[in-house]
Design a protein around this nucleic acid. Structure first.
Lengths: 352, 352
DNA sequence: GCTACTAAATGGAACGTTCCAATAAATCAA
DNA sequence: TTGATTTATTGGAACGTTCCATTTAGTAGC
């Protein structure tokens, strides 16, 4: 019946009339203990209101069964999904992952990583904050702790990465727009401090290049990766002397913003201006019009990252293969009908 | 230069030519150490690649500086906001909170709580999973660990609660609908295993009662608290012999679903059927039509919960006052114009 | 030169567990 | 019976820190 001071295995031992070692073995589920003894001990555990002290145990065991997940933005459902995917895997492996949010702040990230290490985690899955400095993980690497990057990678790092095929996704989406007859395209949102940005922009550019869109017709408008950023991007684009007719957006939030801004100007997304998003968050399907977007299966990537981590821990290595997840373009309504059948002169040689 | 085996304060001591006790004092920022000695030690700490072992320290200190946040559904931005609000406060208090997700699963919750306790957290902020059994927190209570419930409470529990004024929010929203001229109303979504459901439904009923809507005209359709649930609720309601003309939804997700279903039937949310949501998630503002909703400031409630927890830890008590957060109705477009001026006979005595 | 005091640094015990080597009890082979 | 083997249990040392009681060195007062 729960004393003031917390109970230890010694209290259990006294209660059950055995030694502390026996209690320890029971706690670890060892088969060496006689079943009757074990159940006697288990009863005592209940009676004294014992809670296991993992910190003390780790002092000897060196193997800690807790894994840290460091997420750059938990309020973005895209990353929340990632976390949930990982959790699913860890749960069935009997591990409780602790999630920490960095709010896209490298300083905060530093604190969080430090704290997680001090806590003695067995491994770390990280979606690094924007602007993470190259050296941020050096200390962790030299400590020999397994780390996996999810969704994002760092420019020069040797840490394994689990991420979607951003290049290919952007390529597919852009090709789709070009196939619809668009001849002047724009890439909306993001900024170059993010590796993902370069990947997606690269796919956009390659598609333009291989499908005969000149560099001058492959525009780029940087901006915040949020609804607000999308609104701003669209304003900028439409203010151009020769505005584009279609946009590939850095992510769905930007796409929603762009569609909102279109509506505000009396333009209909899809028919007047084509929009493709990236990530395919749950909301995309339910929007009006439903958003065409590149699906990346973030929960699936989370599961994959968790599996890789488990494997690394098990084989006590700090290296693993990168894994680039498949993407696919989910075509909905936000790119409207085929432009070529609708307006034969559109997009080429307009003098306006 | 980081050895294979992890460095301890003894290694630092040897490196710096002092005793382990001196190192310990430096780590704790004690003023007893001569500044030159301290900096010598700090250099050694860098050199050996030391990482503090909080588990070992807690063995003596008993004061752990980590706080657990247990969230029922991280993919719901409403709860993610709550977590982020708490984090903001803890961060400035030099505490790193660990977030764990229960995915609305009481069994998972049990595991998560156990693990957090074993880790030796200083306190717990919990948004309990649906269907949490009354005894789920008994063990934690008897351990004397401070716990705060956020957003949700348990039927008979003595644990302090930080939650929005659900009753009042529902009352305000319902009164708004009645003020618009609606005479046959419905409450959409949720189910009675949730205390919040009773609170919100209670507000709905009280408003109907005090504003002259008979019980027979205050309908209830239970359902999932998701978009899908909202769609189902609307179908059910419109299939009634005498369908309602306005709905208060359990949360915004249900409201979005209901609006979707209206559109699918060729009805316009706002003009043909009024919808009010609850929670006022970010999306509500951007929907078409923009959703009228009860704003509850979940980030603010998170901050409040964190403050209460900090206070409890500081004063080493396990009791605190409940805190009911103010709510306010954000009127947007989903309830349309005033019905009375538009259609004088609506809602009363229609024989259809 | 002595005591009294302050400031700085230190050694040892303790925290709650695990793991190894050792013991005790039970069974078996001869 | 004796010794060997197996099964069940146990004591002690170790893990990396903190904290208390001491020690050591330095300064001041007389």
């Amino acid at each position: 019946m729960a004393n003031r001071a917390k109970a230890t295995i010694f209290d259990i031992a006294r209660e059950a009339g055995v030694s502390k070692s026996t209690v320890s073995l029971v706690l670890q589920g060892s088969g060496l203990i006689r079943p009757e003894t074990a159940s006697k001990v288990r009863k005592a555990i209940e009676d004294v209101g014992y809670v296991y002290n993992r910190g003390a145990a780790n002092l000897r065991k060196a193997h800690s069964n807790v894994i840290g997940m460091v997420i750059n933005d938990l309020t973005n459902p895209f990353f929340a999904e990632l976390a949930v995917g990982m959790e699913r895997v860890f749960q069935s492996a009997g591990i409780v992952p602790f999630i920490a949010n960095t709010a896209e702040n490298p300083v905060r990230q530093e604190e969080v990583l430090k704290s997680l290490m001090e806590q003695g985690v067995a491994g770390l899955i990280v979606s690094p904050a924007r602007g993470t400095t190259p050296g941020a993980f050096r200390r962790i690497e030299t400590a020999g702790l397994p780390v996996v990057f999810a969704m994002r990678r760092l420019p020069e790092s040797r840490i394994p990465v689990i991420a979607p095929d951003n290049h290919r996704g952007a390529y597919l989406a852009t090709a789709h727009l070009i196939g619809k007859g668009h001849r002047r395209l724009v890439f909306f949102g993001g900024s170059s401090d993010l590796v993902v940005y370069h990947d997606r922009l690269g796919g956009f550019r390659e598609a333009c290049e291989t499908q005969g869109i000149s560099d001058r017709d492959a525009l780029v408008v940087e901006g915040e990766t949020s609804r607000r950023g999308g609104i701003a991007c669209l304003e900028t684009a439409l203010a151009m002397a020769e505005p584009p007719t279609a946009a590939l957006c850095f992510n769905d939030a930007v796409a929603f913003g762009a569609m909102l801004a279109l509506r505000k100007r009396g333009l209909e997304p899809g028919t007047d201006f084509a929009i493709v998003g990236f990530d395919d968050v749950a909301e995309a399907e339910h929007y009006m019009p439903a958003l065409t977007s590149v699906a990346v299966d973030s929960a699936g990537l989370g599961e994959r990252a968790a599996h890789v981590m488990l494997k690394m821990i098990q084989s006590r290595t700090t290296r693993a293969e990168d894994h680039i997840g498949a993407v696919n373009l989910v075509v909905r309504e936000s790119c409207g009908p085929d432009r070529r059948t609708r307006n034969r002169t559109a997009g080429s040689g307009s003098t306006n």
